[in-house]
Design a protein around this nucleic acid. Structure first.
Lengths: 211, 211
DNA sequence: TCAAAAATCACCCGTTTGGGTGATACCCCA
DNA sequence: TGGGGTATCACCCAAACGGGTGATTTTTGA
C-alpha cells in the first residue's frame, strides 16, 4: 500500500486528486494540505511514501517544504505536480529533493503510473520536463543566497532603500551595501531593479499581493 | 437532476471535478471537454443545464466558447471556474454570458452550492470576485499607464538603466526620466526597484523568464 | 474646436547607488 | 590549524538616479 499526502492550495484540485486516487486499490491518501506550513506538519506526522506537491503555495513555497522536510527525514519521495513548466522551477525543485516532476496536464493514468514508479524507487520525469532540464543544465547557477542576504533581498523587493533596509535590520548602510554586492553577483545582475525582477520571476522571493 | 458539462484542459483537474461531482445525487456529468472546440461540440450536443468552464483553454478560449454556444442556444448557464483572479478576465467573462465566476481555491461545498444556485436561476459571484469587480470599477479612473510608459516599464523590468532605455527606444535620457517620473507617481512608488516589484506583482508587466 | 493629456527634450541639484579596497570576527569542516 | 564562507563595518568616488521647473509638439476627447 502506497501512503500518499496531497499538497495543493486549490481545494478543487486537491479534493479532485484525492477522490481520483481513492479508486486505486494500492494507494491510500493519508493526509492533505493547502499551504506550505501545513504540508510540512502533515508530512512529518504521517511519514508518507510519496508526496504530491504543487510548487506554488501560500506561506511557504513547495521548494521550501521539500527542504524543511528533507532536513528531518529523507525517506519521503516528492512528486512535483504543477501547472507551470517554466524552466526556472524545475532545477530548484529537483535539487531541493524532488524525484519526479509532472505537469498538471498529464492524464490520470500517467499520474498513477508515476506514483507507482516513484514508490518503487524510480524517477519519472516527463519528457517535456526532461528536455527543459537538459537545456537549463548548461547555465546551472547554484549560487544560493545566505539567510541574511535573503532578508535584504526581501526588503529590496518591498522597495526599500539601503538606508531603510539598514534601519529595518539594525545594520549599517555599509553592511547592506556589502550584502547587496554579493546578492548582485550571485543573481548575476547589475542593479537593484534587475535584482527585484529576477527575485520575483525566479520565485526566490514570493509574491506578496497585499496591495 | 442537474445535467453538467465539465471543460478544463488539465485532465487531472477535469477528472477530479467529475469524480467529485459524481458524489452529488442531484447532479450528473453528461460530458467533458479538454479544449474549446471540443467544448462547443459537446455542449451543443448534450444541452446541459450548467457548464463548468475554465477560461484558459487550447484552441478556443473560454470566452469564445461561451459566445459561440450562446449564439445558438441561450438556456445553458455557464459557471466560470478559473485559477486567475485577475481583474481583466472577470468583466469579459461576465459580459460574454457567464452567470457565475468562481476561483479554483473555492471549497467543493461552495462549488456544488454554486452549481445548484446557478441551475435554480441565481448568479453566484464569489465575494472575492465581487470585491475585485468593485475595486476594478472604482480604480478604473486612476492611473492607467500610457503605451509609451508601458514601453519604458517593460525595459525597466528587464533591468535596463535610463541610458539603455533611451537607446532602446530612441529617446533622450531626459525623456526617459520624464516617463519614469510619471510611472512612479501612477504606480505610487518611489524607486525603480519598487516599480519593478509592483509591475510584476500586479501583472502589469508579464513574467517572461525566457533566459 | 479647444483644453487636456501624452510625448518629447533641457537644465539643475542633491541623494542614492554600485564598485572598489580594505578590516575584524565568527563558524564550519577538512 | 587553517582556509573558506558569512556577517559585520569603514572609506572613497564616479555614475546613476529622482525631483524639481519649464518648454514644445502632437494626439485625443469632450
Amino acid at each position: 500500500m502506497i501512503r500518499l499526502v496531497v499538497v495543493d492550495d486549490h481545494p478543487v484540485v486537491r479534493h479532485g486528486l484525492v477522490s481520483m486516487l481513492s479508486y486505486e486499490s494500492d494507494m491510500q491518501v493519508v493526509g492533505e494540505a493547502g499551504d506550505g506550513a501545513e504540508a510540512v506538519r502533515v508530512i512529518l506526522e504521517q511519514q508518507p511514501d510519496v508526496v504530491l506537491l504543487d510548487l506554488r503555495l501560500p506561506q511557504l513555497s513547495g521548494i521550501e517544504v521539500m527542504k524543511q522536510v528533507r532536513a528531518k527525514q529523507t525517506d519521503t519521495r516528492f512528486l512535483v505536480l504543477t501547472t507551470y513548466d517554466a524552466d526556472e522551477y524545475i532545477v530548484p525543485a529537483l535539487s531541493a529533493g524532488a524525484q519526479g516532476y509532472l505537469l498538471k496536464d498529464t492524464t490520470p493514468e500517467e499520474l498513477t503510473r508515476a506514483i507507482r514508479a516513484l514508490a518503487a524507487g524510480g524517477s519519472p520525469l516527463e519528457p517535456a520536463v526532461a528536455a527543459k532540464l537538459l537545456t537549463s543544465m548548461k547555465e546551472s547557477d547554484d549560487d544560493e543566497l545566505s539567510a541574511r542576504e535573503m532578508d535584504v533581498l526581501k526588503l529590496l523587493v518591498a522597495g526599500a532603500s539601503n538606508k531603510m533596509i539598514a534601519a529595518q535590520l539594525n545594520l549599517s548602510e555599509n553592511t547592506v551595501k556589502s550584502h547587496l554586492s554579493h546578492i548582485f553577483s550571485k543573481l548575476q545582475v547589475q542593479s537593484r531593479a534587475e535584482a527585484v525582477a529576477v527575485a520575483l520571476q525566479r520565485g526566490i522571493v514570493p509574491m506578496d499581493r497585499s496591495t
